[in-house]
Amino acid sequence: MLYKRYIPVVALIGKEGELTPLSIVWEDYQDRKVYKVDKVLNKRKASSQVGGCGMLYECMILGKRRKLFYEKNRWFIECQKPY
């Protein structure tokens, strides 16, 4: 089962205003880890199976393919853990 989780993201705003996620921040009860976005595989408008829609950035993070969405003005990721 997948869950929707809003997360902080470090992103680069390019000269033309385009957005590129550089790393994502994972906050747990105890700690806070920063994972680098190794590569943005593709970028397109899409809806998410966990609800919501926006600009989808399919990314490689730690060797895994992850779906990162920019929805309105914030980021969420489809993830296995509810919190």
């Binding site: 397109r44 408008k45 899409a46 809806s47």
Partner: peptide
Amino acid sequence: IQERVFRETGL
């Protein structure tokens, strides 16, 4: 257009 709306917004 109908398909795009569904794919991009889920509506």
